[in-house]
Amino acid sequence: MTSPLVTVTDLKVHFPIKKGILAKTVGHVYAVDGISFDIMPGETIGIVGESGCGKTTAGMAMVQLTPVTSGAVLWKGRDMAEMTRSELRALRREMQLIFQDPYSSLNPRMTVRQILSDPMDVHGLFTGHQRKERIDFLLDTVGLSPGQADLYPHEFSGGQRQRIGIARALALDPCLIIGDEPVSALDVSIQAQIINLLKRLKRDFNLSLIIISHDLAVVEYICDRIIVMYLGKIVEAADYASLYKNPRHPYTRTLMSAIPVPDPARRTRRIILKGDVPSPISPPDGCRFHTRCPDRMEICHKQEPAMRRFGNRHTAACHLYTDEQAEPVENKPKAKEKIS
């Protein structure tokens, strides 16, 4: 069996909230609060969930761009916290980022050639005559023409700028690319171009990808595995097909049913959640979803549900299910005591 490229174990990122002149810590934002998962080489993982649930923070913690409170991120089995500076620098080469906003993430005063050369200069790679070849190759890969290398970002459309961002991420032949909402800012017709491009890159380069998105449909389209987060925790993780066919967690089901289907013949009654996501500064006790869950029971606001396994690659944390190899509780409505 191949071993994971990245192993995340009980990762926590808590941001202190400081008040007053003495900057006393008066509380914490529990942005990421104990998440664990693996990424295999060549695997594409999607992280979904509502705004503020900790998706970006989780991604940033994985590349050590945000301080980790506790837990570990292993890169090919090595704990990143124990790496030396130069090891970390070398690692930066192998992990790259693509950002949501194709406007602000590119330096407006640099040409495409300079933007793409920058990471190569930093790492002393593709020097001399290799440089031009590499840049032509990168531009071609993302569907731009080498003739556009000496233009500035403002001379490109939004979709083209996102392609430049992707070319920059590919410049050093990384093993892992993290895309934080890589298509959210784009028009639908352009979104499709970038989604297709990401799918093609993953196929052609055997890349591992993490796609962070609030759009479950986009994630299902690109990713092999999907992680659903709620208030800093993973509530469900599964292969895309298993998640779509058999969503176990009430939150996943709600999220799926809330997505409007572009087919007027399939107007269905949706599960409409009451209220908003609670604050990650004081998350609810027990199951964090209990304040909005349509299925909540007495136990849910007292005890945090354990992560349970459904089949070999599907896990969910919810009291509706019992024990290992959990199957749905029979007579679900009976098991449910309404609280109000």
Binding site: S157, G159, V188, S189, I190, Q191, A192, Q193, I195, N196, K199, D215, L216, A217, V218, E220, Y221, Y240, A241, Y244, K245, M256, I259, V261, P262, D263
Partner: peptide, 26 residues
Amino acid sequence: GLLASIPVLGHRTLGKDEDLVEIKGM
């Protein structure tokens, strides 16, 4: 083109794993 270019939840799972249709250009 617009209708064919949107990822629809479930399409891939249900075996419609073709590339999305792109509207070329801008």
